[in-house]
Amino acid sequence: MEVLQLLISGLANGCVYGLVALGFVLIYKATEAVNFSQGDFMMLGAFVTLGFVNPEYMGLPFWVALPLVFIVMGTIGYLLDLIVLRAVFGQSQVAVIILTIAIGFVIRFVVGIIWGHEPQSLHSPLALGDFRMGELVLGLADVAVIVTTFVMTMLLWQFFQRTKIGLAMQAASQNQMAAYYMGIPVKRVQGMVWALGGIVAAVAGILYASKGSIDPTAGFIGIKAFAAAVIGGFGSLPGALAGGLIVGIIEPFAARYLPPGYSQIAPYALLIAVLLFRPHGLFAQVRTKKV
């Protein structure tokens, strides 16, 4: 029973990692850039929601606030691409890495200024109550997280596989020049994917905040999400989710069964092991390109 309980809490945590990882993969898939500030995006999304929903701020009903949050985060994502990232369009990945790390610092600072550095909890309808099944206790938040994540992943996956714009995003990432020739507005497509990344981050943030309190340093879970994304293979959406689940499930079990001190190493050790033996992740998408 204990194992099952650990498994479920791990699954719920893993889904949040998976959602943040999904944001990485989304942006990576469409722009070949890695957004090192995705964790901070998530934190920002949570705080924007908190600003709309919590009674001490605007006190809007949750379901009214939700679309507003998506609009705000989408706009922030789009503007960020428009103003900042478009300048390094086509430049080396190192520039983008450094740039997004810097953006993360700035986001953390701005959130700290607006909402303070104290941990706060979101008044979310998901945070209330839990199920009981025999000895098993299921938080409603945990169930909501797991369900939402699976639905999101499936939707985004199908979006990339089936819709015209999803295919355009894939094309734009694989060969920018060729995509231009095919009439794809590459820059606008990239802006859209950043907006989408912002929205996914907002979903992750809301779910994360529903599971507990949130403060401006919450963005550091982005690092665990990295581990998730890499374990899943950076280019694959279901892979990101699977990676997130693996990391999430390993954590509580490591904390339970390994001696103290070793448990927080576990996700990173796994990351390095995966990079050693399957450098492109468990669901590899890279094959040597023929010239």
């Binding site: 390094v88 450094i98 740039l99 810097a102 993360g104 610092f105 700035v106 953390r108 600072f109 200024i113």
Partner: peptide, 18 residues
Amino acid sequence: IPGLESAVFGVILIVFIL
């Protein structure tokens, strides 16, 4: 102000890369 230093550094960095 907590985080001011890294935020200023972040802004400097963004400005430089751009």
